[in-house]
């Protein structure tokens, strides 16, 4: 699964849904793989407005990437800063989590990732 997927996931436990701590899930002991993807500035520019920037910042650090700028780049920033464009391209479009876990900061439940597939099926006592 691409790192960007984490922008759209939360803890599956019902009681966690209403707390802000259940997003983002925190990557733990993750193995990463990198796909080679042709530069796609249109995609990068158009997906950024829907990225929760502070959440992405914490995910980047948890995965061992350099920290992001405090504020998200505007489309003009992105166009003029080839390094930022390249860094975000790598983080958002090329990087996949292949193994590891995603942890809810509210309830502590760990969702395992195996062969790139995160498993959100809850054990019976949490349903």
């Amino acid at each position: 699964m691409k790192v960007l997927t984490l922008n759209f996931l939360t803890c599956a436990v019902k009681a966690c849904k209403t707390t802000s701590a259940s997003f983002p899930l925190v990557p733990k002991e993750c193995e990463l793989v990198s796909d080679t993807i042709a530069p796609n500035p249109t995609l990068l520019t158009n997906l950024l407005p829907r990225v929760d920037w502070p959440a992405l910042g914490s995910i980047a650090v948890a995965l061992g990437f350099p920290s992001l700028s405090p504020l998200p780049p505007t489309p003009a920033d992105l166009e003029n800063d080839t390094k930022m464009m390249a860094d975000l391209h790598t983080l958002l479009l090329e990087t996949q989590i292949s193994e590891g876990s995603l942890v809810c900061a509210n309830c502590g439940h760990e969702y395992k990732v195996k062969e790139g597939i995160a498993n959100f099926l809850l054990p019976n006592h949490l349903v």
Partner: peptide
Amino acid sequence: GFYLGNVAADLTGALRCGEV
């Protein structure tokens, strides 16, 4: 398109609100 991946889950239970 740009494919994010697949997750194993019960329906929409793992999705963040208001994104789809």
